[in-house]
Write a protein that binds this DNA or RNA. Sequence first.
DNA 1: TGTACATCAGTGAACGCGCGTTCACTGATGTAC
DNA 2: TGTACATCAGTGAACGCGCGTTCACTGATGTAC
Lengths: 223, 223
Amino acid sequence: MYTAFTVDVNTVYKETAIKLHSTMSLARKAYHHGELRESLLESAEALLEQDGPAGLSLRKVGRQLGVTPGAPYRHFEDKDALLAALATEGFRKLRAAMLATQEGAADGQERLRRAGVGYLQFASAHPELFRLMFGWMPARDVPELCDAGDAAFAALEGILKGCDEEGLLSRSVNEAGLLVWSAVHGAAFLTIDDRLKLSEPAPDAECVLNLLHDGLWSGIGRH
Amino acid sequence: MYTAFTVDVNTVYKETAIKLHSTMSLARKAYHHGELRESLLESAEALLEQDGPAGLSLRKVGRQLGVTPGAPYRHFEDKDALLAALATEGFRKLRAAMLATQEGAADGQERLRRAGVGYLQFASAHPELFRLMFGWMPARDVPELCDAGDAAFAALEGILKGCDEEGLLSRSVNEAGLLVWSAVHGAAFLTIDDRLKLSEPAPDAECVLNLLHDGLWSGIGRH
DNA sequence: TGTACATCAGTGAACGCGCGTTCACTGATGTAC
DNA sequence: TGTACATCAGTGAACGCGCGTTCACTGATGTAC
């Protein structure tokens, strides 16, 4: 029984990258990794953020996990499937980021502001993933991926509908949505491409979004 | 003298992809291409738009031009240099697109609108190039490329300054710039990623931009 | 509780591929006299 | 105008590389009895 070694292994090898699990943990190397699918996704995202999309290869991900080149194929049909799973997870996280701080918001306007901050923070935290999600997704039509993308957009739409019901909007939900989404999405890209030199040091997500929010809400024109 | 064949060649081989030039043109195959640098850039952009960044290789570009794999190295130090040149040219075209229809505009507001339309049209016409310009540029700091990018931004800034001098703006040029650029940039990405399902068929650049413009100028909130 | 066995999740070697890049070369161009 | 020659812009063969993917295999797991 390998499990007999659990304790020693945990202390002796904790400095190695090998992750130990209660049900497997063993001397040096597990034949069965145990959570390879999750680990692949994690490693792939780390690699993506580090080297960009061109630097992401299945072999590298496997290598980083101490696993054979063929191993990932037990969990993903091919490389594209891994990327799709990555993007899908990304959309879920993006949605979660928008909705994370909704509680306790006074009104629709404040809910919208908070969702925008979440959007920008997500993009800043995962720039390459964000690019992958938006630049690459249309190529493949994976239902799961599309659903996750739609759900993220639906979160924004829901908040705007709330605004509308509260009588806050001067135009249709669709028009307001186009404007709001464009502005936040554009700001996200400009931020991760480091094209915003508004101040030194670079302004954080909340600050950028407050500027956007004020401008969007009341316009840039003199009335 | 090969030039003696010019006329015949032009008629006989016009169906082949070989481009003939007054100073070289010859039987079937020129040793010296004549305009290889320009041709490489053209072919590379076509390939980029067709297959995306992953599908762009120097060898393919050369092949498409009927030239040896080594030939491009007479004109570009390496692949990155070609990409940088492509992006540089892209920023020049983007700037030109923004400024192309400025003449005859009644005021700053109209100038801003037209610049926005140009921006959107450029992105629609060259989606992959647009992505390359914005996603990839920060990696390398090629002075020419940075200059071209700055010049494009400066065009927008100039128009906004004009608006400011005409007393049209309710906020600073910097704040208005962040908002306007974000909105148009975001709309550009959403457009090329085909995420805007406002209407069927998809709205054109002018239409999307008019919506943005109205919203930006007067805000989405009820006053 | 123990044993047999189907299933699962890895191994590791191999495949063919297209890529970026180098290099010694050669044909074409253009310039000096 | 003609000739010699330096320079330029190609050739084509070769290099090593890392990649995605396949495949027969085997160790580990979990389930039925």
